[in-house]
Write a protein that binds this DNA or RNA. Structure first.
Lengths: 337, 337
DNA sequence: CTGAAAGCGCTTACAG
DNA sequence: CTGAAAGCGCTTACAG
């Protein structure tokens, strides 16, 4: 019951292994009749390529790597990553590529994983998430020569191709929407300050609140956990001139913020309007449902995967600017009373 | 700048490739001095084994596969899977094993993925989640001879080793706790009816409510989504003799249930007590926080990974019974008024 | 303890 | 269009 190899097929077809290889890979070098015969035999014996043998001679592993550098509890609770992975996979598996995943403790560990993957030829390329300001991974990956696509940007991606989207405009639109409802004191509970997109959002928040002359606007940094969201919200809401609206950089913190408002017997949206960034299904489970900034994350992942495969194939892949997040208004926002 | 191979090391050390292989793998066959010299050179040139070459000769890929068969939106929103993956990885990466992940549409697709992985020798073994009643994957995997560990049980796992935990006892304890608080009308919003653990919980619910003489106890099936949780809760709460307590089979539905109760201006826990199964951090974000049945999921994953590696190594791995879920009471449960 | 060789299952120039 | 051969980078009997 050994697995059939191309040698077995060659023997049964009465041709050389080379001919079998050409036939099976759809390459020229065999006549149509021979090709047909070979394919039929392969089908009949249930031949499947040995991935190790292919990788060893072709020097391609047909695997793409993703190292995630967030604590397990954040990864688990943030729908973003699993949605991204689903999108990646839809594209990868359609092209017979595998995805290997590793959860790492920090950026150094992530880089070490990338080095090892590449040195061992376990992957043909990697996806890079959570881009930081002056991210050390960018020059390191460039030096390694490991094909990579950065999910994030713009800029700070060096010579690596990126898939990114603008966060400044949606943030500005959201503040304008809240201001139009009559809010004057708006707070922004931001994510990890070292992440590039946190900086983009924070700067956009500063710019638009300055432009709209909202001097009491404030940004507070967090680590994306619900605990942080709750703690910061309690502090904000117990200040003398508390905000009437809060924008949270993820959905988990927004839910925590809603919980705190309810705990303090504040009416949402009468006393406090809440906006979540990342419109996961969680936003529609609460009462009131959360107004949220959402994007099609699986589609985003699919584009990143497609670009990475192109980069692996040696194509000159440029940056891809994806559509910005859209604001969906729900019960958690309204005029302050 | 080609990557160094054992041939390079052998040349520099003035020994054969075989000697280098023995030295690098800690096998007998080389003297201590030669081994030292070889290891030093390998270190110096930054040698890393080519995984394909190793797999081709050793017939091991050092990769474990996990196929997840849930829609992307459920996977994303359920903390369970990412926590499980974190736990798997902690164990796997410590033993230099990789994890390859694939999201599939249904059980047939999952089996096809397993077959392909094994045929292509991409994995040395697989983890099987979401065990069903008379699961067709069990005999199929047994026939393939692909090392596998089932996460779930008991029974219905054929000859495959499993890592499981009892859901009947925690369910019974929860109902007893609610009954002790004075609840007489208790509902159970169950998960997918085809999953084995759903059946275990449902039967346990039936048994304990019968024993406690709670004739109005009812179980309703769902698909784990928040929408289903909300829809079922609305129906339950609008019935003439509505339940005063509901046990939800996951945290997402429990949160949706809380939202519906708030929408209907019911007091939680005064009018309705809520219990969530799966005590993810989400349960502590709501107001009131949710009473929940929780377990250490990463640790569960780590045990499953450890057992799978043992099975791959040819050890005779038995079933492992993990600790049952513990009930943590929070603000969402209390005496009915 | 060590060396030389075969082999894992493919791919790919290189001759015919 | 086809065949015979080398090679990918390891591991592992098999001789010395």
């Amino acid at each position: 019951m050994k697995r059939p190899t191309i040698a077995d097929i060659a023997r049964r077809a009465g041709v050389s292994k080379g001919a079998v290889s050409y036939a099976l890979n759809g390459r020229p070098g065999v006549s149509a009749g021979t090709r047909q015969r070979i394919l039929a035999i392969a089908e009949e014996v249930g031949w499947q390529p040995n991935s190790a043998a292919r990788a060893l001679s072709g020097s391609m592993s047909n695997v793409v790597g993703l190292a995630l550098c967030r604590p397990a509890r954040v990864l688990g609770i943030e729908p973003f990553f699993m949605e991204l992975i689903s999108g990646l996979e839809a594209e990868l598996s359609a092209r017979d590529y595998g995805l290997t995943l590793q959860v790492v403790a920090d950026a150094d560990a992530e880089l070490a994983v990338h080095r090892r993957w590449w040195a061992e030829r376990r992957v043909d390329g990697v996806l890079v998430c959570d881009l930081r300001v002056d991210d050390p991974r960018v020059p390191a990956l460039e030096e390694l020569g490991l094909p990579a696509v950065v999910i994030g940007g713009p800029a700070h991606t060096g010579g690596l191709p990126s898939v990114w989207h603008d966060d400044a405009q949606p943030l500005a639109e959201t503040v304008e929407y809240l201001a139009a409802l009559g809010h004057r004191r708006i707070a922004h509970v931001a994510g990890l300050p070292e992440l590039l997109h946190t900086r983009v959002r924070t700067e956009a928040f500063h710019d638009v609140t300055t432009r709209l002359a909202l001097p009491e606007a404030v940004t507070v940094s967090s680590d994306y956990t619900g605990e942080a969201g709750a703690r910061i919200t309690r502090r904000l809401l117990s200040s003398p001139r508390r905000p009437t609206a809060v924008i949270y950089d993820n959905d988990v913190m927004a839910i925590a913020g809603l919980g705190v408002a309810q705990e303090l017997r504040l009416d949402v949206p009468g006393d406090l309007s809440i906006v979540a960034w990342d419109d996961s299904p969680l936003c529609q489970l609460t009462h009131p449902a959360l107004t949220a900034l959402g994007r099609d994350i699986p589609a985003y992942g699919a584009i990143a995967a497609k670009r990475l495969l192109a980069a692996i194939a040696g194509e000159d892949v440029g940056d891809h600017r994806d559509v910005p997040a859209q604001l969906t208004t729900r019960g958690s926002t309204g005029a302050p009373r």
